[in-house]
Design a protein around this nucleic acid. Sequence first.
DNA 1: CACATATAGATGCATTTGCATCTATATTGC
DNA 2: GCAATATAGATGCAAATGCATCTATATGTG
Lengths: 140, 140
Amino acid sequence: MTDFETREAAWIALNQMHVRVHRNIERALQDAGMPRLDWYDVLWALECAPEGLRPYQMQEALLFEQSGFSRLAMRLENEGLIIRRKDKTDGRGLVLHITDQGKALRGKIWPVYRQAIDQEMRHASEQKDCLTALLNHPRK
Amino acid sequence: MTDFETREAAWIALNQMHVRVHRNIERALQDAGMPRLDWYDVLWALECAPEGLRPYQMQEALLFEQSGFSRLAMRLENEGLIIRRKDKTDGRGLVLHITDQGKALRGKIWPVYRQAIDQEMRHASEQKDCLTALLNHPRK
DNA sequence: CACATATAGATGCATTTGCATCTATATTGC
DNA sequence: GCAATATAGATGCAAATGCATCTATATGTG
């Protein structure tokens, strides 16, 4: 197997694994009446940062697109889960903070999410062969 | 590290790797004036199946949602890249075939796609630690 | 200070998604 | 053969995405 073939196989495996796991986790959350995964990521990041976070920081950390995140933050604020304050030291920007309601929701999501991760990743690891090949492959 | 923590770390790594690689590959294709990745997958699957394929088969193989694939197939037909024929043995269904134009386009996409896979997966393998942990973890 | 450029975030628009539902044909059990 | 159920695929609708663009503030240079 050439280096390229190894990488290609890993790319295919990466996609399949991701689609399957992601879809199943999203469905588990939804079946439990919970919001989507990206909501969780934002809430958790903010709960870990009591001083708040700037949108552009979260975009980088969580790999969101700028416009997508802008609207996501708006939705979360509309639901009362976060607050967007003007940044005092940078008039262009905002600082996001989680609300008590946001914390409460995150706490409710976690057990469901945790259980789904555990279950789906266990299945996923059963199809690991292609990725293993990549990961064990010596890199030039 | 507990089993769960290992799986959680792998889930996070899986997501990050997937978003980064997927986004970069899509951009490489787009910058080269090529269509989106899902088009390629369909064209390639059909090129490998001269007798054609039923939509429901492709949905399973490529992990598409039913409605999403239905519309994707329509777009591809509108572009002249595939043909949807009625299945003679099953009045409910279709058989999809690739056209010469479809084959030509797939052939044009491949070098760009190949190059992008090679480059992005090489980078990706540099951040493999969390996934490695999962994959090397003995499974109960 | 004034002007050019860079950065943070919002928004309009076209496209795509996901879900639920709909139609048509197949299959199963009586 | 006929009713009940299952399966293939299409479609309406609300929501989400990506892209380009817009506004406002910051920063850097003369």
